[in-house]
């Protein structure tokens, strides 16, 4: 596997992580190492093997349409980095 710096930036962008330019040189070999390790999985022949998504065979795990109000606005806002009495506050989103 050979990642280039463009891919590093793309992955960082998708993960909403800011990376410094000087760190990219170091990230390339580190990421490559992880990917090469994972590539080992490709040695296995998975033809005709359905992807495993769920840990059991359960279907229709559902509930009836009945309201249960379990937390208050105050409780809900408590863990937010920034909030006022009623709203979560986040850095201004310029895009409109």
């Amino acid at each position: 596997m050979n990642l280039d710096s463009k891919t590093i930036y793309k992955i960082a962008d998708l993960a909403r992580i800011h990376i410094e330019e000087e760190d990219v040189e170091q990230l390339i070999p580190e990421m490559n190492k992880i990917l090469s390790f994972m590539e080992k999985l490709n040695e296995l022949d998975t033809t005709n093997v359905e992807p495993l998504v769920y840990m059991n065979d359960a279907t229709n795990v559902w509930r009836e349409d009945e309201i249960k109000q379990e937390i208050s606005t105050t409780d809900g806002l408590k863990n937010a980095a920034k909030h006022n009495e009623r709203f979560f506050m986040v850095p201004k989103i310029i895009e409109k």
């Binding site: 809900g76 709203f87 979560f88 506050m89 986040v90 850095p91 201004k92």
Partner: peptide, 9 residues
Amino acid sequence: DENYSLVDL
């Protein structure tokens, strides 16, 4: 708000 966007969930 001048400096923040407000979020209502």
